[in-house]
């Protein structure tokens, strides 16, 4: 049994506003173990982003418990690069925030950027990069502090289809080769199947895990290859039914 990086036990969360309360999660239990790539799919507005905020510790659960081992890095739908910083400075941002801007850490982050094709853009500003490149820079920024767990909130959904396939491929490659644990939120079923070791299906709001599947594809991890494999459409059908049934 591998070490569990994240453990949700019977978590519920209620948002309180002046107009009333919204139950965003109830009886939510799941775990993510080390080195695993877990995708979470669910209908829109069911509480997926809430789940990530809970995992990141930005929200406290109303009841239940959340255990997380190690640090986490959060990646959002849009790249959220700061337009007044160069790509290099953007990548150093989490190091600055966490007061870890040592020479060693800077070099490591820089090396990551170079390794994954951003070397020529380090001194550019975000506005000079394409959407795909920017999202890649956002991932390198997330990896700069070497987090143990990556939390990805629909990181590809703002990209056009072609770019999206390419960036998905890149990001999968980067996450796998850096040996990271990842929790990916998406509402795109095929994205979940092409990327994940395990898929969790959430119910409509309040979110709860209704189904859970381990995807194998004979050890194949590359999203493009998976998309071409025979099992792919079968999984798609199953998940589609579970999501809509």
């Amino acid at each position: 049994m591998k070490k569990e990086m994240l453990l949700f036990s019977d978590v519920s969360l209620i948002y309180h506003t002046a107009r009333g309360e919204t139950k965003a999660a109830e009886g939510l239990s799941f775990s993510v173990s080390e080195g695993e790539f877990v995708a979470v799919i669910g209908p829109s507005g069911c509480g997926k982003t809430t789940l990530l905020s809970l995992a990141a510790g930005l929200l406290k659960p109303s009841s239940g418990s959340i255990e997380r081992h190690g640090s986490c890095g959060y990646m959002l739908q849009k790249d959220e690069l700061f337009r007044w910083r160069t790509i290099e400075k953007n990548i150093y941002l989490p190091l600055e925030i966490k007061h870890q801007k040592t020479e060693e850490n800077r070099l490591r982050a820089r090396a990551l950027a170079v390794k994954y094709g951003l070397g020529d853009f380090l001194q550019s500003y975000p506005s000079q990069l394409s959407g795909g490149m920017r999202q890649r820079a956002a991932l390198i920024r997330t990896l700069a502090t070497d987090p143990d767990l990556l939390l990805l909130d629909e990181p590809f959904s703002a990209l056009d289809y072609q770019t999206r396939l390419n960036v998905t491929e890149d990001v999968a490659e980067i996450i796998r080769s850096e040996g990271k644990t990842a929790l990916l939120i998406t509402h795109d079923i095929s994205e979940a199947i092409s990327l994940a070791d395990r898929v969790l299906v959430l119910s409509p709001r309040p979110a709860r895990v209704t189904h859970e599947h381990t995807l194998d594809f004979g050890g194949e991890k590359k999203p493009m290859r998976r998309r071409e494999m025979s099992g792919f459409s079968g999984w798609f059908e199953i998940l589609w039914k579970e999501l809509n049934g």
């Binding site: 905020s53 990141a56 930005l58 986490c72 959060y74 959002l76 966490k98 502090t145 939390l151």
Partner: peptide, 8 residues
């Protein structure tokens, strides 16, 4: 949100 997730 991003900065807060970094612990700012």
């Amino acid at each position: 949100l991003l900065l807060r997730s970094m612990g700012a």
